[in-house]
Design a protein around this nucleic acid. Structure first.
Length: 509
RNA sequence: GGCUCGUUCGUCUAUCGGUUAGGACAAUUGGUUUUCAUCCAAUAAAGAGGGGUUCGACUCCCCUACGAGCUACCA
C-alpha cells in the first residue's frame, strides 16, 4: 500500500483578526506538512455571512506571510486543483451531499422556528433534562420525520424556511483515534441532531468542513481542542456519506490559555492582557477598536514561530532555539502535549531577545532607519548598521532600537545627574581638555587608540580610571550606561567625539 | 447541569514502572563589566488528594477535587 500524500489545511473564519492561537494551529499544520513533504492549504470558512468582517481575510493572508508559513494552495496563495478555497464560493456543491444524506435516511428537514426551538429548550430545562434536539425530542417537533410526507413536500414546494439536521441513532458509540489524545469515545445519546444545512442555503461548519476535507483530499485534520466535541459528528458524517475509507486522521491541539489561567486566549482579549494576541496591528472595522500586533510590538517573525512552536510542543531535547527548517525536521504530533499552555510574556521576550542578538545588523538597520525617519533624522547606512551591532544585545524588541541608540545620532544636551554628582570634580575639566588634545592627534581613530589616549590623559592628571570612565561616557552619550565605551567612541568618530567632549566641558559644571 | 479532554517547580516542559524527578524562562544571591545588557556560577522551586495493581509508581487502573473545551440555523 502506498502512503497518500499528506495534505493538511488551516481553515479560519474571517470573523476578525487571526489570533496567535490560530497562528500556532497554522504553524503546526505547516510544520507537519513540510515534515512529510505534503501540502499545506489555506481555506476560508465563511459560511456564516452574519459574522463576516471585511478585511479579515486579507489580514489572515498577511499574517501568514509575515510569520513565513505560507500555504502552497489557497486563498491569497494561488489556486491548486481543488479551487475554490472559500466556502461561500463552494456553496453549490454542499447541497448535493445534503440531499444524498436525506435520501439515504441520515438527515431530515426541520421546519421549527427559533421560538419553537427556544420553547422546547426551556421546557426541557425546566424539567431538568438536557435540552437537545435528539431522537426523543425530535418526535415532538416539526420535521420531515413527524410531519406527513405530503405536508413536508408542500412546505418545501411552498418555499417555507427549513434546515436539514443529521439523524443520529439513539444510542451508538462513536470511537475514533486522535493522533494526540489516543482513543476518544462519545455516545450519540449525549449528542444532538446538529443542523447541517441552514435556512439561508449555506451549510454549517460541520457539513462544509467534512465535504471540503474530503474533496480536497485532506489526510490530517489538525485543529484546536475546541473541536473535539464535534469530532464524533464529523466521524459519523464521513460514515453516512460513504467516505469512511477516506476519513482523515484527527489531531486536536491543546488550547492556548490566558496567563491568569482563566480560559482560552481569544480575539476579544486584544491588548487587555498586556501583550499582543494578534500577529499584526488590527483595527476592528465595526467598533474601531485598535489592537497591537507582534510585528509592530517589535517581535521578529522567526522568534514568534519559535516561541509559538514551544507552546504545546517540545523536541524532547534541551535545544530551544529552532529556526524554521529545524522545526520542520524536529516536529512531530506525538510530541504535542495534551494540556493547555498559558502564554508566558517573559519567555516570549527572551525568545525575541535571542533572535535580535542573532539578527543581521543590516536587517535591524532597516527597522532603525524607519524609526530615524520618523524622527526626521538621516544617517549614513553603514553607520546605522554599526550602531545596531553595538546595541542589539541590549534590547528585546526592535521597536526599542531608537530609544537605545538616539545619542548616536543626536549629540547629548543633558547629562546624567547622579554620575556628575558622584564623579565630577576639579580635575575633570583638565582630563577632558587633555583628552581632546590627545584624541586630536590620533590618525587611526579606533577603540584601541582611543583607550590608549584615555589612559594617557588620566596618568598625566593622576586620575584613576574607575573614577573617571563613567564620567567619560556621560560626556559622550549623556547616559550612565551603554555599549562598550571605546567602541562607542570609535563609532562616533573623531570629530563627533571631540565635539561631544567640548560641549560637555562647557555644559557640565 | 450534561458530555469530553486534561492535571509535574510561579510559567513552558523532560520523564514513556526502578532517576538525587532534568532543562528553559522568571525570581534571588554572587562573579564579570566604568555602567546597563550580555555572560558565568549558585540558591530556591513540582508529581492535586485518596484508593488500588506491582517487589517497586510521577508513570497503569478507579474515585474525588480542580481546570479547560463544548453544549447556536457561530466557527
Amino acid at each position: 500500500m502506498t502512503e497518500k500524500k499528506v495534505r493538511v489545511r488551516f481553515a479560519p473564519s474571517p470573523t476578525g483578526a487571526l489570533h496567535i492561537g490560530g497562528v500556532r494551529t497554522a504553524l503546526y499544520n505547516y510544520l507537519f506538512a513540510k515534515k512529510h513533504g505534503g501540502d499545506f492549504i489555506l481555506r476560508i470558512e465563511d459560511t456564516d455571512q452574519g459574522r463576516f468582517v471585511p478585511g479579515a481575510e486579507q489580514y489572515i493572508i498577511e499574517s501568514l506571510k509575515w510569520v513565513g508559513i505560507e500555504p502552497n494552495e489557497g486563498i491569497g496563495f494561488g489556486d491548486g486543483e481543488y479551487a475554490p478555497y472559500r466556502q461561500s464560493d463552494r456553496k453549490p456543491m454542499y447541497k448535493k451531499y445534503v440531499d444524498q444524506l436525506i435520501n439515504d435516511g441520515f438527515a431530515y428537514y426541520a421546519f421549527d422556528t427559533a421560538e419553537e426551538l427556544d420553547a422546547m429548550r426551556d421546557r426541557l430545562k425546566a424539567s431538568n433534562v438536557d435540552s437537545k434536539y435528539d431522537p426523543i425530542t425530535r418526535s415532538a417537533m416539526k420535521n420531515s420525520l413527524t410531519l406527513p410526507e405530503d405536508e413536508t413536500k408542500r412546505r418545501l414546494e411552498n418555499g417555507d424556511p427549513f434546515v436539514v439536521r443529521i439523524k443520529l441513532p439513539r444510542k451508538d458509540e462513536v470511537k475514533f483515534h486522535d493522533e494526540i489524545r489516543g482513543w476518544v469515545t462519545f455516545n450519540t445519546s449525549t449528542m444532538d441532531d446538529k443542523v447541517l444545512y441552514k435556512s439561508d442555503g449555506m451549510p454549517t461548519y460541520h457539513m462544509a468542513n467534512v465535504v471540503d476535507d474530503y474533496s480536497m483530499k485532506i489526510t490530517h485534520v489538525i485543529r484546536g481542542e475546541e473541536w473535539l466535541p464535534s469530532a464524533p459528528l464529523h466521524v459519523l458524517l464521513y460514515k453516512y456519506l460513504g467516505w469512511e475509507d477516506a476519513m482523515p486522521k484527527f489531531a486536536h491541539l491543546p488550547l492556548l490559555l490566558k496567563p491568569d489561567g482563566n480560559g482560552k486566549l481569544s480575539k476579544r482579549d486584544g491588548d487587555k492582557l498586556g501583550f499582543p494576541v494578534f500577529p499584526l496591528d488590527w483595527v476592528d472595522p465595526n467598533t474601531g477598536e485598535k489592537s497591537s500586533g507582534y510585528k509592530q510590538a517589535g517581535y521578529l517573525p522567526e522568534a514568534v514561530i519559535n516561541l509559538l512552536a514551544f507552546l504545546g510542543w517540545n523536541p524532547g531535547t534541551a535545544q530551544e532555539l529552532f529556526n524554521k527548517q529545524e522545526l520542520i525536521a524536529a516536529f512531530s504530533l506525538e510530541r504535542v502535549s495534551k494540556h493547555g499552555a498559558k502564554f508566558d510574556q517573559n519567555k516570549a521576550k527572551w525568545f525575541n531577545h535571542q533572535y535580535i542578538k542573532m539578527e543581521d545588523n543590516s536587517l535591524l538597520a532597516v527597522e532603525l532607519n524607519k524609526q530615524l525617519a520618523a524622527q526626521n533624522i538621516t544617517a549614513d547606512s553603514t553607520y546605522v548598521e554599526q550602531v545596531c551591532g553595538l546595541i542589539k544585545e541590549k534590547i528585546s524588541f526592535t521597536k526599542e532600537l531608537f530609544d537605545y541608540s538616539n545619542y548616536f545620532f543626536v549629540e547629548p544636551s543633558v547629562y546624567d545627574e547622579t554620575v556628575i554628582k558622584k564623579r565630577w570634580n576639579e580635575k575633570s575639566p583638565l582630563v577632558i581638555a587633555e583628552l581632546i588634545t590627545l584624541l586630536n592627534n590620533i590618525s587611526d581613530f579606533n577603540h584601541a587608540n582611543i583607550e590608549a589616549a584615555y589612559h594617557e590623559a588620566l596618568t598625566k592628571n593622576e586620575v584613576e580610571s574607575k573614577d573617571f570612565l563613567q564620567m567619560f561616557r556621560v560626556c559622550l552619550s549623556g547616559l550612565a550606561g551603554g555599549p562598550p565605551m571605546f567602541e562607542m567612541a570609535a563609532l562616533f568618530g573623531k570629530q563627533s567625539t571631540i565635539n561631544r567632549l567640548e560641549s560637555a566641558l562647557q555644559r557640565i559644571k
